[in-house]
Design a protein around this nucleic acid. Structure first.
Lengths: 261, 261
DNA sequence: ACAACATTGTCGCCTAGGTGACAATCTTCG
DNA sequence: CGAAGATTGTCACCTAGGCGACAATGTTGT
């Protein structure tokens, strides 16, 4: 599956020789929320799309766009990770999702000639392909298959946001965190964790601060710290290097199965 | 309000001459969350789409589908109103959105051959066109313009859900209710309220029980009752017949402008 | 018209989680 | 290296809003 991308990566360095492109389909609706747009395209589609793109390199914390901007380009992550979030007037940040390599973002604002609705910032050093909205629209118009893929991506996002909404109104913080971790573990599965991971453990490969988690699940930073400490105490998770390991995925899954389908 | 649709309900005459289809673009992202799919299509597209549809009549409270169902047809509301919601394992119902005449729903589950993720129930006597997913997919494939419209609809839904999410994590119940009412008022604008409405008032034309509101904003029924009573006391809203009127829209808007862009 | 059911209004009590305030570590980068 | 800045851990305190329990009032089907 990866070699399919060699031609993508090449003209533009070796981004994406990386296994990140492999996202195995989990059983729930989350997994395909991170459906990989780029990899779903055929070779010729990919070529057509990327030939009108240009690449951007972002340092950690660089903003790609902000709410209110008038740009409405569409982006595809080549490597790294982009954080998409909104800020409420009170300054509270709500992270809507992260975009990982191969994923596309900014489409939802394509149809709204208007203003950007959210902020996109590089969560780490990140490379993206940027495509002018006009070019992208034209690409979709001339590649019906790709348009259908786009519809699929957006649909997945709708479903994912729906699930988040339900979780937010009916789960407590601990459950929300647990679910979030499982989700990210699924996204980043496919690569064994480099650090010493006991067999059977799941690795949440993304660097998430407690604040990030708080912003993702709609809780306060302090509560996240406390809850995470508790999850550690009951051996549900452990911290390796900078990231979290889920010690007994099955146990966790069962736990979540009970508190939310 | 319904006679406007008479021609839809007749086979399929000149849909779209009607005013209801015209939803005036508000300044926020909500308004186009209820973008009207049917009216955005050209006459020939409409004809092509509807010729492979068949019509269903639903009584109030009839289920169109349930989570877990294997059907994945796509529907377009002809008249009435469909409530789309999920149920958490604890039995808590979360309403994701209502679909009004001309709106399409079920697309988000098109790409997921799998199972329905949510429940769709008639909120009142309702007529819908149902289209088999295969037919709809084919329709999109052969009508690029329509596919773009679909992308637009889904994008709007993504934006809308994003906003709801932000509101949920940063606004209190009163603000959430206020925003909700403004949103529904916008959706149902365009027709003057039949009942005695003082000039300048906005009418929320949908029949919403307190429980509905609670399920929409993620609060308890009791809190909604209390909060609504408070809004009534401060003359922000009043209850006419079965529905709510927003007394001073501008005042309300300003209020919301402060607590959330 | 009436029984069965759905909706609303309002209590009082109770807890999950927000907030502020520090101190203790980590990271970064000049 | 070392200072400025991020990130974490943990207090104590406080409140928005959930929950159960009724009574009153509306709505519906037959």
């Amino acid at each position: 599956m990866n070699n399919l991308f060699e031609h993508v990566l090449n003209p533009l360095s070796d981004i994406g020789t990386n296994d990140f492109f492999n996202i195995d389909e989990g059983e729930d609706a989350w997994s395909d929320a991170h459906a990989n747009f780029l990899s779903s395209l055929s070779e010729s589609e990919t070529k057509d799309l990327l030939k009108c793109s240009h690449r951007l390199d972002l340092k950690s914390r660089d903003y790609l766009f902000r709410a209110g901007d008038h740009s409405n380009d569409v982006y595809i992550v080549a490597g790294g990770c982009i954080r998409l979030f909104q800020v409420s007037p009170t300054g509270k940040e709500t992270i809507l999702w992260f975009s990982f390599p191969g994923e596309i973002f900014g489409i939802a604002e394509l149809s709204r000639g208007n203003e950007r609705q959210l902020y996109a910032v590089a969560n780490e050093a990140t490379q993206v392909f940027s495509i002018r909205s006009k070019d992208f629209t034209q690409f979709l118009g001339t590649h019906p298959e790709a348009a259908m893929k786009a519809i699929g991506i957006l649909s997945a996002r709708v479903r994912a946001l729906g699930h988040i909404l339900v979780g937010l109104t009916s789960d407590n913080v601990e459950t929300r965190i647990a679910r979030l971790l499982m989700r990210f573990a699924a996204v980043s599965s496919g690569t064994r964790c480099c650090a010493g991971s006991t067999e059977g453990e799941l690795c949440v490969r993304v660097r998430l601060t407690h604040q990030d988690i708080a912003n993702l699940i709609g809780a306060s930073r302090q509560t996240v710290s406390t809850t995470l400490a508790h999850l550690r105490k009951i051996d549900a998770v452990r911290t390796v290097d900078q990231h979290i390991h889920i010690v007994q995925p099955d146990h966790m899954r069962r736990l979540l199965g009970l508190s939310a389908a």
